[in-house]
Design a binder for these strands. Structure first.
Lengths: 224, 224
DNA sequence: TGCGATTTGTCCGTATGTATT
DNA sequence: TAATACATACGGACAAATCGC
């Protein structure tokens, strides 16, 4: 008996547990650096320890959790170097995505891109910071889907939770956050254009700007 | 302070099981497309089902196994499209690696590269096909280590077993295989030089050549 | 189509080993 | 050093889903 609908997630408890635990991390409900006690978390999520452990393995693979053998599993802590790595890697991935997908663009996919951007602008106008973060990521999903490259898409899907995680931390620290209103205008314009090299060059700037927009608050946090 | 032994693998049975199972796949001991019966494999590896399941999750993440909920876990089958994806993604990753690591090269690391190439040439001379495959991958490890980029290195470490897997299949089908004697001469020369763009351009050719060198036999195999 | 056999998903109790106090 | 807390690992159990006839 399952009145399960909205999310087409697989219907194994392990997978739902994976998603729920990721939620708890991404919303900042679980504090970075803190230890996860298996019995405690299992009880909280109302699953067995075996099921929880299977869910945690995948979160460790992604990088949201860190497992130290015989010592425990901890919520990932992000420092400035980690964030720089995430952004530089993301830049490389997205350049690949545009290279693979460039010739696959058509009217339909470009209209789709346009829609995603409008949704982003809408959430920003609404002062919906969390929604804006999700909308921005969804905007960037576009090029990966366009590429039709499953390994590339997988890699992006693995990286994305780390970005969300950082944004959540950022937003929790200073409550203003999120992308700026016009930050994607040039991005969209170039993505619709016919100059791939210019698009690729812009990506470097775009990402660098995104990094610096969010990175700053780490400097004010206690080191270590 | 613990006296370190040969294998720096972690001490947990789950991890050793992961490695042993990967061995069985990479050596072709387990046939691509075949189903893994948990009780049977667990008995063969002399571990509990729970431990085996935890090990299998990570192999599913890498892509060597495919898990279908309630239906079972299967050994990955690679078709021509998969192989093309692996190679195109690998090309992108390695270009990133050289970009990140280019300015970090010094006499020591270049001597290290030289050594890896000489070892590769040696194994080829010895007609040690399996050793040559490992030596070639180790040669390519160089740029990822040089980059000092943990996400990039991780990504490569995830991709590498898929390459090994394919090489193993290839070698099992036709027993001649492995890299050619001079295939890396230009690669090494450019990696030692001072023209990054030329290096990046060569990578495309190098990978394309590697792909076509191995891809051919898939055409002679039954489709599906 | 249906039914029995098989296998996976999940839970629990428990024992062992490791880290920490 | 001893004691405690916890992760690791096992084996058995059962329901639910799938598979084969």
């Amino acid at each position: 008996m399952k009145s399960q609908n909205q999310t087409p997630s697989t219907d194994t408890l392990k997978d739902r547990t994976h998603e729920r635990l990721q939620e708890l991390i991404l919303t900042g409900d679980l504090v970075p650096g803190s230890k996860l006690l298996e019995t405690q978390v299992a009880a909280r999520l109302d699953v067995s320890r075996a099921t929880l452990r299977e869910a945690m393995i995948r979160l460790s693979e992604i990088g949201l959790l860190v497992n130290l053998p015989f010592r425990g599993t901890y919520i990932r802590k992000l420092d400035r170097v980690d964030l720089q790595e995430i952004y530089s890697f993301r830049t490389g991935l997205e350049k690949m995505a545009f290279q693979f997908g460039w010739d696959k663009r058509d009217l339909i996919s470009l209209a789709d891109l346009q829609m995603r951007n409008e949704r982003l602008c809408q959430t920003i106008s609404d002062n919906d910071a969390f929604g804006a973060i999700m909308a921005e990521l969804h905007l960037h999903d576009w090029c990966y889907e366009l590429s039709g490259h499953s390994l590339l898409l997988q890699s992006w899907e693995r990286l994305k939770p780390n970005l969300q995680f950082y944004f959540a931390m950022h937003q929790k620290a200073h409550d203003r956050a999120g992308p700026l209103r016009e930050s994607h205008d040039e991005y969209i314009r170039l993505a619709k254009g016919d100059n791939l090299d210019e698009m690729l060059r812009h990506l470097e700037d775009h990402m660098q700007q995104g990094l610096q927009n969010t990175q700053s608050f780490l400097d004010t946090t206690s080191p270590g």
